[in-house]
Amino acid sequence: MLKTFTEKLGKTTLRGVEELGYSLALLVESFYWLFFGFRRRQAIKLPSIFAQMMHIGIQALPIVAILAFAIGMMLAIQGIATLKTFGAESQVVLGIALSVTREFAPLIIGILVAGRSGSALAARIGTMQIAQEIDALRVIGISPVRYLMTPAMLAMLVMLPALTFFADLIALFGGGVYSSLELGMSLQAYADRTIEVLKIDDITQGLYKSLVFAVIITLVSFVNGFSVTAGAEGVGKATTRSVVLSITYIIIADMVFTFFLTH
């Protein structure tokens, strides 16, 4: 009993270490192709980056808008209710502004993109793996990392901060709508007050986080996609696993990030 448990623990740890090593190698390789690909006549092609950006970013705008608006409202509702007990409900603007830009916008976007685009990437790569399309790329002399991963990585690195910034704006607006209704302050006054309390650092802090999340989502999706071996079931498993792992790593990274940025 104990032996099987330690055996399992050992195996899991080994797999974790292996995957970490593999992820780092992939990370290095994807940037290698970005900067040196042209030297081996394997430059990154713009159309594939734009195709990824469309899927990861542009097509996510409606759902991001809805989520961000709801979160802004939720923070305002919660904030006003809590602060009322201290009679400090006018401080709600500060609360919303900081928690949206530093915490909620990057986190929600990270989780959303992991679920939406990370899963799609893992499924696509996994399917290509079992159909031997990845092998076909390699025997044609095309690096799968350069052809598939680098464009996705670039698109993620551009679109996650962009979506996060967009979510900042919408969530602040959502908070403003509720606050103005509840506290009878005008939207204009709310906006002025928000600009007054928000520092540029609060926004960039959220954007930096989203860059880290972009790397996490891409790496986890590709590690799991490339590792698919057995059939359609394997693709399903890899997809689920990559979403769960991405979200887990995102939340842990967020905690670590927040700790260091507030100290």
Partner: peptide, 30 residues
């Protein structure tokens, strides 16, 4: 690899491309 051609068991055509794009891919790349 430019001197090598491979036909895999299941064909391994790229599903997101047309047949023509599949065939022309090595030319585009090399």
């Amino acid at each position: 690899r430019k001197n090598m051609g491979v036909s895999f068991q299941g064909g391994a055509l790229f599903n997101s491309m047309t047949v023509g794009e599949n065939v022309c891919l090595p030319l585009h790349e090399h």
